[in-house]
Design a protein around this nucleic acid. Structure first.
Lengths: 220, 220
DNA sequence: CGATACGTTGAGAATTTTCAATCCGAGTGG
DNA sequence: CCACTCGGATTGAAAATTCTCAACGTATCG
């Protein structure tokens, strides 16, 4: 995902930066999708709203990730919201096509990004479809902590993630009430702790065990 | 996904055909992934087995689809099982790389395939995460019927799908017992019927309503 | 200070799973 | 042809999980 070479290609394009403050939309489902975005700073939540009003958080994007991950369509199939104060690098679609032609590395980057998204979506599918609440939440939080810990600065088992319990609910398909209870449960079992936007892994072996499979290299 | 031009490119490579009978494995999770496969005949189930023994069916592949959909890895991240008597066209990875270089269309095909898989995985995620049983099953069966009906021969609202209730359970994250009850439920409400490997859509409008979103062009 | 968003807690309702028994059709061997 | 087995499907009943509703606490912000 964060192939330094290819990212550099994109940066060399010297496209404009844009700042979005917490809660702001970077792009919205249903509107024309004429740009791609490279996240420079902050966290982005990618979500989808169904006709019946249900909202699902499908993925999170961290600095270095490229949006949107899905296939090119005329209009965006989901929305991107700033979970943090976010800086993105805008690249117009025409520019992107130009880069594709000029930079062979771009294509590999795109494939890698989409490939990771597919692996992740299917890992999530496997966990959400068949696991009870504790494991869904462990899966999500362990995955996020893992992604953070593999980026500089390499910290301890104490990771800041700018999301709320409500967003955990939207990403795991549970009610916020049950998220709260399950987090207490995990805390009482001294497995992991989520409080004040901080994840603390107390028992890494146990968490890894219940969090389920992460495809090799998934989060890098 | 079934871009005739690109499929033709692959066919022109005159790679060997292979026949697999019902229940046979086409490739297996964890074994070296040195081929790709174009499905010529029959249905293929793509599934993953977790360390705890849980099995999830992530997707189905129909004639014209290319496997594996996921990103290139040295070993397969999932298994492919023949749900039918299946014929596939084998293409060695080295051959595939050669095609990639020679056939610009190949690349577009690959992107389209992976893009569809991602859209589908996320549509499934959205449905399975937040919808009750009736809607999960309606989503799955309507999606399969839709995929079939958009391939020749264009039939009525009566479609043959070579899967069992147990496989529906594995694809929707429900227990087989509950699948049986929910199918009865849907039949009694005269929405859709699944019996003897045949899907019958009784009330198309109602099914479409509860089956949830299918990304534009998803199943084509 | 009020308004608001987020989190926590309790209690009852709804959904789904598990376990167990039974049924049915397709193969299989005698 | 018959008994037998086996996998898939169905049904009932109890148990487990999760949701909804409602009340309350707490921090933040204007």
């Amino acid at each position: 995902m964060r192939d330094a070479q290819s990212i550099a290609s994109l940066e060399r394009a010297r496209s404009p930066l844009r700042h979005i403050s917490v809660g702001g939309l970077i792009f919205e489902q249903g509107t024309p999708a004429d740009h791609i975005y490279v996240v420079k700073r902050g966290w982005v939540g990618l979500y989808q709203t169904n006709p019946d009003g249900n909202t699902v958080i499908l993925d999170f994007a961290l600095p270095g990730d490229v949006l949107p991950l899905e296939r090119h369509t005329k209009t965006a199939t989901r929305s991107a919201v700033a979970l943090d104060n976010v800086t993105v690098c805008l690249i117009h679609r025409s520019r992107q096509e130009q880069l594709e032609r000029e930079q062979p590395a771009y294509d590999a980057l795109h494939r890698a990004v989409v490939g990771r998204a597919l692996d992740l979506a299917e890992a999530n599918l496997a966990t959400i479809a068949f696991s009870p609440a504790r494991e869904r939440i462990a899966h999500l939080l362990w995955g996020l902590a893992f992604r953070c810990l593999h980026r500089p600065p390499l910290e301890s088992d104490h990771v800041r993630v700018p999301i709320s319990q409500i967003q955990i609910a939207l990403a795991t398909g549970m009610s916020p009430v049950h998220v709260s209870r399950t987090l207490r449960n995990l805390r009482e079992d001294r497995m992991l702790d989520f409080e004040d936007h901080m994840i603390t892994i107390h028992n890494r072996a146990a968490v890894e065990r219940i969090a389920g499979v992460f495809p090799e290299g998934m989060a890098i």
